[in-house]
Simulated scan of single mutants.
Amino acid sequence: MRIAAFPKGYLTEMIVDRTLSVFDWIERAGSLGVDGLELHSGFFWSGGSEDEVSRIGDALDAASFEMPMLCASPDLTHPDSDQRAREFDVEVEMIRVASTLGGPGTSCRLVSGQAHPGVSIDQGLEWVHDAIERLIPIARELDVVLAIENHYKASTWQYPEFAQRKEVFLRLLDGIAERAHFGVQFDPSNAIVAGEDSADFLEAVIDRVVTMQASDRFLASGTTLDDLRQADGTIGYSPALMHGVIGRGLNDYDRIFATLVGAGYDGWISIEDGVNGMDEMRQSAEFLRDARERWFGGSTAVRVRSRELALLAE
């Protein structure tokens, strides 16, 4: 298992306000002790031009970071066909950027899109399946892995994720046969936000997981998950569901790691945080380094025990 970091806590400064550049972030991340940095399509202020991508690649190399994952958020369920086409084109461009910066096997995230009013589940899935099937040959040609995330809501979106519910997400996966260049980016905290048990969600998709994001959530004093569930069964971005250091919150990481190792997963896990500052990100990185030693260290005994725990969890 290798560890990356993603600056969720700085997305407004980096994407909306543009007061913190990707070069600033690369320098700042040097204190985390991670192997790579997950980037976002919004970090490319020049739109991913050849010169910009080259300069970012040079900065990553100089800081001894890999770029294993690129985060993009195409709205493939938009009711306007012209807008869907534009969203598709942006994803294609991000696949190209991911290939350039990360090389063979790099993952490029995609999501289904927003839950636009008036778009039925069947119609949305038809659009998403069509887009993914057209993206797969491009990803295959560039040796990039498309990683669809169990997402909740992009910061710039008006509506939550179309496929936030597990049953819809699983229907989406079942409609795509490709395994080599398409899989799942698992986010345990997004499962919680969508009203699911994160370890249960992982077990439902473990055979398709190609990358993982890691964070944790904490309930404000005096609240319960049932209190926070909205009428549709989700929790949403409630102010009573707070960010914090990985491994100390609602996610059962022992069960999550047991499931991952039991399935043979040994890929990238990216810290998706920084909401409360760099100190918590450093603590989260330390937690994942300890987890790597405990769960992914290569010991036969550890791997056998992990498989036993995964079976017990079923």
Score class of each variant (00 low, 15 high):
Val261Thr: 01
Trp45Ile: 13
Glu133Ile: 09
Phe186Glu: 04
Ser221Gln: 13
Phe65Gln: 05
Arg84Ser: 04
Thr300Ser: 15
Glu38Arg: 00
Ala313Pro: 06
Leu225Asn: 05
Thr259Gln: 12
Ala163Lys: 05
Thr234Gly: 00
Asp75Val: 01
Val302Tyr: 08
Ile235Trp: 12
Leu173Gly: 14
Leu170Cys: 05
Arg171Ala: 15
Arg165Glu: 15
Tyr10Leu: 13
His40Pro: 07
Ala177Phe: 06
Glu286Tyr: 04
Val210Trp: 12
Ala291His: 09
Ala154Trp: 11
Leu312Pro: 03
Arg18Glu: 05
Thr223Met: 06
Leu172Gln: 12
Arg86Ala: 15
Gly297Gln: 04
Asp187Tyr: 09
Leu125Phe: 04
Phe182Thr: 07
Ser198Cys: 11
Gly30Trp: 03
Ile148Glu: 07
Gly222Leu: 11
Leu225Pro: 03
Leu101Asn: 00
Asp207His: 14
Thr156Gln: 13
Glu38Pro: 02
Arg28Asp: 10
His116Glu: 05
Leu250Asn: 10
Ala180Cys: 09
Ile121Ser: 14
Phe257Tyr: 11
Trp157Leu: 13
Gln164Ser: 15
Ser198Thr: 12
Val209Asp: 03
Arg28Ile: 07
Arg140Ser: 15
Ile192Lys: 10
Phe186Arg: 00
Leu110Tyr: 07
Phe88Gln: 09
Ala180Tyr: 07
Arg289Lys: 13
Ser31Tyr: 06
Val97Ala: 05
Ala199Cys: 05
Gly124Ile: 02
Thr77Val: 01
Ala72Thr: 14
Asp174Gly: 15
Gly267Val: 11
Thr234His: 03
Asp226Ile: 10
Gly298Ser: 05
Asn276Val: 09
Met1Ala: 14
Arg255Asn: 13
His151Glu: 12
Ala62Arg: 12
Tyr159Glu: 15
Val119Pro: 02
Glu293Asn: 08
Asp17Tyr: 07
Phe43Pro: 08
Ser49Met: 13
Tyr253Ala: 15
Glu133Gly: 13
Val111Trp: 06
Ile235Met: 10
His116Asp: 06
Asp174Asn: 14
Ala285Thr: 03
Ala310Glu: 00
Ser54Thr: 14
Gly262Ile: 00
Leu20Ala: 10
Cys108Ala: 08
Tyr265Arg: 10
Met278Asn: 08
His40Lys: 10
Ala163Asn: 09
Pro188Cys: 02
Leu288Val: 01
Val245Gln: 14
